Computed example of a mutant assay.
Amino acid sequence: LSIVVGDRLADAVAWYYPHPLAGFESLAGRVAVYPGRLEECTVDGEVVRAQPGDFYGGWITDRIVGPFKGAPGTLGW
């Protein structure tokens, strides 16, 4: 999905599952955002760090402890 922030268009910064698989129905109607594809995203005033790699959309804050998948060498986890 793309979003408009002010007068700027940001392409391919979010995704959603219109018809989630069984067991994941709670994801229907929710949108997830790749923080690394935007200028800045915050949680409670803290600027989040994007999860490494281009595939994952994880939001890393000081309250979250790794290791985090996506960095070189983590493909086989």
Rank of each mutant, 00 (worst) to 15 (best):
L1M: 07
L1C: 03
S2P: 08
V4L: 07
V4P: 09
V5I: 07
G6R: 05
R8I: 06
R8T: 08
L9D: 03
L9F: 04
L9Y: 10
A10V: 06
D11H: 13
A12W: 04
A12H: 07
V13D: 01
W15H: 03
Y16P: 11
Y16I: 08
Y16D: 09
Y16T: 11
Y17R: 11
P18M: 01
H19D: 12
H19I: 09
P20I: 11
L21H: 12
A22V: 15
A22L: 14
A22Y: 12
F24Q: 14
F24R: 13
F24H: 12
F24D: 13
E25R: 14
E25M: 15
E25T: 15
E25P: 15
E25K: 15
S26Y: 14
S26D: 15
S26N: 14
S26M: 13
L27Q: 12
L27N: 15
A28T: 12
G29A: 09
R30W: 12
V31Y: 08
V33M: 02
V33K: 02
V33R: 02
V33F: 04
V33Q: 02
P35D: 10
G36Y: 01
G36T: 03
R37Y: 01
R37F: 00
R37C: 02
R37S: 03
L38T: 00
L38M: 07
E39W: 02
E40F: 00
E40V: 01
C41V: 04
T42G: 01
T42M: 00
V43I: 05
V43D: 02
V43L: 04
D44A: 04
E46L: 02
E46K: 01
V47D: 02
R49Q: 04
R49M: 10
A50L: 03
A50M: 06
A50F: 03
A50C: 08
P52T: 12
G53S: 11
D54F: 03
F55I: 08
F55W: 11
Y56W: 09
G58I: 10
G58S: 10
G58Y: 09
W59M: 08
I60L: 07
I60M: 06
I60H: 09
D62A: 13
D62E: 08
D62K: 11
D62W: 07
R63G: 09
R63P: 00
I64Q: 05
I64R: 10
I64E: 03
G66A: 12
G66V: 12
G66R: 11
F68E: 10
G70P: 07
P72W: 11
G73H: 10
G73T: 15
T74N: 08
T74H: 11
T74A: 09
G76Q: 13
W77K: 13
